[in-house]
Design a protein around this nucleic acid. Structure first.
Lengths: 117, 117
DNA sequence: ACACTATATCACTATATGGTGATATAGTCA
DNA sequence: TGACTATATCACCATATAGTGATATAGTGT
């Protein structure tokens, strides 16, 4: 016998396309290397070599991750002579990180409290 | 010659541990199946079979994804006789999804506008 | 005890992707 | 032109994981 806990489909859910788009955005933000790049760019635009030097990444990897962030529309690219200057195009991502970060801190505090008794 | 675009290290960045925690949270939210489960739970608590039936997931997969959401602290589990009742423990996730979703819509609109000329 | 239901876990496959070294492409400067 | 610098791309490997069928575990009702 089926015994449902609550009525379903009370209000509409995201369409599959939107759902995937949201999942993709989260996926882009789920890599520490990319988050580090975003943190660096938060301080201002930077070239690939700036990023490589500051974050100690291999050039190929930095370029790849920048490409992913670019494709997601999170950063923008501007050619400057020889160099490629990347900058934040979607400051929203910092709101996202801040929300998560606040919660992470909360959870850590809660866990610590539960350990104390 | 090194020719930096902007001064670096202007303000402190997240510590590695926090960075990974944030990345992990985003990773958990980066799967459509898990987002669908969260959407369903947004309407109220549900058992595993509710979820399996409504979302047309295999039982093993539903159980696995619920375990991941549970470990992340996003949902809570309550035993009710034979069944396991899952519910939202971190409503924050809907704020995150809403932020991303709004932006996805914006990007789609912008892209459509650019296509129109 | 038994049959039945509900959930979790195991072993496995297929796929995706982060990181890397090598190479290609493109701009700069002499 | 040629040497140099900066960036992107390619081919590859190693790892992670979503999904699956089979099985284990645990509660319910007879």
């Amino acid at each position: 016998m089926k015994n449902s806990t609550a009525p379903r489909r009370a209000h509409k859910s995201l369409e599959p396309a939107q759902l995937h788009a949201v999942a993709d955005m989260f996926a882009v933000l789920s890599e520490p290397s990319r988050l580090r790049i975003l943190q660096l760019l938060q301080q201002g635009p930077a070239s690939v070599s700036d990023i490589v030097d500051t974050l100690d990444l291999k050039q190929a990897n930095a370029s790849k991750q920048l490409g992913i962030l670019l494709a997601a529309g999170i950063i923008a690219r501007q050619q400057d002579g020889n160099r490629a200057i990347y900058s934040i195009a979607l400051p929203l991502v910092f709101d996202l990180c801040q929300l998560v970060c606040r919660n992470v801190a909360e959870q850590a505090a809660t866990r610590a409290a539960s350990l104390r008794g």
